[in-house]
Design a binder for these strands. Structure first.
Length: 830
RNA sequence: GGACCGUUAGUCUAGUUGGCUAGGACGUCGCCUUCACACGGCGAAGAUCACCGGUUCAAAUCCGGUACGGUCCACCA
């Protein structure tokens, strides 16, 4: 036992332990341990986007608590850390900060700029994770832009190609005209926008009476690409026209009028133009009715030669103005209405997404939906109801996953095309990592035509292709022969917002690659909101910077907010008061420990590493047994809460018990026994010391996963000599001991505590200090049994309350202060 | 429009299998400088547990409905 300084200086102490833990290699996964069971966390590699944010703090606190808890339970814990580097976000930022467009400079130069920015961001985020005290095994650190990770991603592509999961096709895809790339459904955001609904006359062909249909559309610029008009066959107005032809204005092309029951008769005019492609519904209609496709726009959102006529080269919004003007002039525009519409925008650059048909690479994911649902139902979800998000998403998809992107900073698709015959050459596993834009295939001639020249694939892979194989990569695939012992991962942590991407893509990739699910449980975190309950954003002025919060309050305080701020999976606001409360609790625990360490200076406990094997050498008092019983109950509750990832319950129980039961009552009650053994007896003093020593250690252990730094510091001062663990972080998690639970003792102790509180209350009402002496106290127990119980607390009552004469009688009375819902009455005389 | 979640004191929240005299925090008010801690202690006020109905000896808790809020998804041409 070494003496503890008066104040807890979190800045110094947290930093000290962060580097000491690293020196001790405390968090390294032991790849060669054949005995201990492994527990692996599929740490989602974050997208380096700048400084660590509060959302990261929440996530990493969650699974760091799990990692520390599991480690103490004796598991060989794998807590890896990677960085998901590629992506449109970085490309856009590099363009913005350097004021360039990526296609204006050599691709490798642009990619180097991206890598430099990513490295800068990784540095910032890593510093944040270290300050948070995350027990990451840094020997596992990787970047998805590293050649070795490219190799994994490309290898998985080759294997999936060989298994028939990867194919090329010309299917309409979501297209961002600004970034000139295809994007997945999951990358499309929907925003509300004010739009105009134009009512346009489409003349019927071969009509003697100049009949026309009125078409309502919010996208008149698509008229040149109109391939049909659809109506609901049940619609009395139009049913009779089905099968006839109609003339598309401006281009004067005849198109069929088709029947489709999906048409909403109440919206607009009930007659809809089908254009290739104005929206996703058009795509479905074209496929269903086998309609021709007229390509209206090209990759950068301009009108094509193919369809454009006089509008060639215009951007869509320019074309709209021109088309509307032309329609007005022709007298075909009947009216314009304002409407609220929702449009899809690119989630990175917010440009309106268009639908474009272009050759792309796809992964056959649709056929895995049943398997996704089955596996989602078989794994554990914390909280359970979140599994619906994955199942619903899998079942709602309209088409396969577009895995190709037309970008630069990404993993290349390892394929080539024969210049002569177009034959596809896919890389062999031993060729990767490889960039087909820079290198040719490692064959001499085209296997089909014998040609010598090849063109490398220009498209690259979706970033999710990198990050959706983490479970296998973390486990050691493809290099470690025994990687399957860490697969599936024990736990995959995910945010509510990325279930449909991360959890889904992990699921389909691993199912397709290995016919195995990637993880056995999912831990869900909610979003971090501003203190006002709204989404945290710099523009709303409710943004809290994580590095600042950590520097100001320390990791252990911020971690308490993250763990205790709300139920697992629910969104939690960042409330400063919560952090400050956490800070005050640390202070309380520190002071209580410093106090205890003084009182325990002359106490020599048995040296043991078995938490359940120490026994008191002396007879314990009622309150000693009472607090030990309560501590066991707490142990059970906290262990259960951690098992179920209910961190908020664990935090609250530990704090309330420590602060309001141990400090406010138990510590107050035993003070006099500890101070004055000459009055209360040496045995009584040792009993209190034994109990205090035991319960404080227990509290530190239970709290260690949440506040690792403070608990470590106290442990090192007070318990290192007797407990034989070099760190509390690897001490053996306490096992709940039902033998130490005694409900009768707890009830009796509670009665003593209630009496204590009642007499304190009496002093308060008489406006006396709590240490004011009381001359006489008579407790009327009401019966002999109760009197005997209260008798057991005599020492603690008299010493805590400074009672000079305490008389306990089994007599009944109704005079004085009643202990609520009992027959016990108290009379005091000062 | 669909799915999921929520609605508990001025504010935030706990209450997982129905037994609660509804727990805690922040804030408010009063008292106490007490020999670990004023970053403290003791105490007070403050809640018809959104609303309506049902099941039950018993409902904040279970069931049905309504209203409001949130999140995700899908969407109207």
């Amino acid at each position: 036992m070494s003496s503890m300084p008066k104040d807890y200086k979190f800045t110094e102490i947290e930093q000290k332990w962060q580097s000491k833990w690293e020196e001790m290699k405390l968090y390294h996964y032991d790849w060669n341990d054949p005995i201990r069971e492994s527990f692996s966390i599929d740490t989602p590699p974050p997208y380096p986007s700048g400084e660590l944010h509060m959302g990261n703090v929440l996530n990493w606190t969650y699974f760091d608590i799990v990692a520390r808890f599991k480690r103490m339970q004796g598991y060989n814990v794998l807590f890896p850390q990677g960085w998901d580097c590629h992506g449109l976000g970085i490309e856009i930022q590099v363009e913005k900060t350097n004021n360039i467009r990526k296609r204006d400079l050599p691709s490798d130069q642009f990619r180097n700029m991206c890598m430099a920015l990513v490295e800068k961001y990784i540095g910032m985020m890593k510093e944040g994770l270290l300050k948070l005290g995350s027990s990451i095994d840094w020997t596992t650190e990787y970047r998805t832009m590293d050649p070795n990770y490219w190799r994994c991603t490309q290898l998985s592509f080759i294997q999936l190609y060989k298994k028939g999961y990867m194919y090329q096709g010309t299917h309409p895809v979501n297209w961002c005209p600004r970034d000139e790339t295809a994007i997945a459904d999951a990358e499309v955001d929907h925003v509300k926008k004010e739009g105009a609904l134009q009512y346009i006359k489409f003349p019927l062909s071969n009509s003697v009476a100049d009949e026309y249909l009125l078409i309502a559309t919010s996208r008149p610029e698509f008229i040149p690409a109109c391939v049909a008009v659809k109506v609901n066959p049940k619609d009395e107005r139009y049913g009779k026209f089905v099968g006839r032809k109609i003339v598309v204005p401006i281009v004067n092309r005849e198109v069929p009028i088709i029947a489709d029951e999906a048409v909403d008769m109440t919206f607009g005019t009930g007659a809809v133009q089908i254009c290739t492609y104005g929206d996703k519904d058009d795509v479905k209609t074209v496929i269903k009715h086998k309609l021709p496709v007229i390509r209206l726009i090209n990759e950068n959102g301009r009108i094509t030669d193919e369809a454009g006529g006089k509008y060639v080269g215009l951007y869509l919004n320019q074309a709209r103005t021109a088309v509307v003007a032309d329609l007005t002039q022709a007298g075909l525009l009947e009216k314009t209405e304002k409407i609220q519409q929702e449009v899809g925008v690119c989630d990175r650059c917010k440009t309106t997404v268009e639908i474009l048909e272009r050759k792309q690479w796809f992964m056959k994911t649709m056929k895995l939906s049943t398997a996704v649902e089955k596996n989602a139902n078989e794994i554990s979800w914390y909280p359970d109801y979140m599994k619906n998000r994955l199942i619903d998403w899998a079942n709602s998809l309209d088409w396969d996953w577009v895995i190709s992107r037309q970008r630069l900073f990404a993993t290349p698709i390892p394929v080539w095309y024969c210049k002569d015959c177009g034959e596809l050459v896919v890389a062999e596993p031993e060729w990767v990592p490889i960039d087909p834009k820079l290198e040719g295939p490692r064959i001499d001639v085209c296997p089909k035509c014998g040609g010598h020249d090849f063109i490398g694939e220009q498209d690259v892979m979706d970033t999710w292709m990198d990050s959706s194989i983490t479970c296998a990569v973390h486990a050691g695939w493809p290099d470690r022969s025994n990687w399957t012992r860490l697969f599936p991962a024990s736990m995959h942590p995910s945010g509510t917002d990325i279930i449909r991407t991360w959890a889904y893509y992990l699921m389909v990739r691993h199912l397709a690659l290995f016919d195995m699910r990637p993880f056995n449980s999912v831990l869900i975190n909610g979003m971090v909101l501003g203190a006002d309950g709204r989404k945290m954003s710099k523009s709303l002025k409710n943004y809290a910077a994580a590095p600042e919060a950590l520097a100001k309050n320390g990791a252990d305080a911020v971690r308490q907010w993250a763990a205790g701020g709300g139920a697992t999976g629910s969104d939690i606001p960042y409330r400063i008061q919560d952090v400050e409360y956490g800070k005050r609790f640390l202070n309380k625990l520190w002071n209580a420990s410093a106090f205890a360490s003084k009182l325990l200076e002359d106490y020599t406990p048995q040296t043991t590493t078995n938490t359940n094997d120490d026994t008191a050498a002396v007879e314990l008092q009622l309150l000693d047994k009472w607090i030990i019983s309560k501590t066991e109950n707490l142990t059970k509750k906290v262990t259960d809460s951690f098992e179920k990832c209910q961190f908020n319950i664990a935090v609250e129980d530990i704090r309330n018990f420590t602060w309001h039961i141990v400090c406010d009552y138990y510590l107050e009650a035993i003070k006099d026994r500890l101070y004055r053994p000459e009055i209360h007896g040496k045995e009584n003093r040792i009993a209190a010391q034994y109990t205090l020593h035991k319960i404080l250690y227990r509290i530190l252990q239970l709290f260690a996963p949440i506040a690792p730094h403070l608990t470590e510091e106290i442990y090192q001062h007070m318990y290192l000599n007797t407990k034989n663990y070099k760190s509390i972080q690897i001490s053996k998690w306490p096992k709940f001991n039902p033998d130490l639970i005694n409900e009768e003792t707890e009830k009796q102790g509670d009665l003593i505590i209630t009496i204590l509180g009642e007499i304190r209350n009496d002093k308060a009402q008489k406006k006396l200090p709590l240490n004011a002496p009381i001359k006489n106290v008579i407790i009327y127990a009401g019966n002999t049994e109760t009197a005997t119980i209260i008798q057991k607390g005599t020492t603690d009552l008299t010493s805590t309350l400074k009672i000079e004469n305490l008389k306990i009688t089994p007599d009944k009375t109704t005079q004085g202060r009643q202990i609520p819902s009992t027959d016990v009455y108290i009379q005091t005389e000062y």
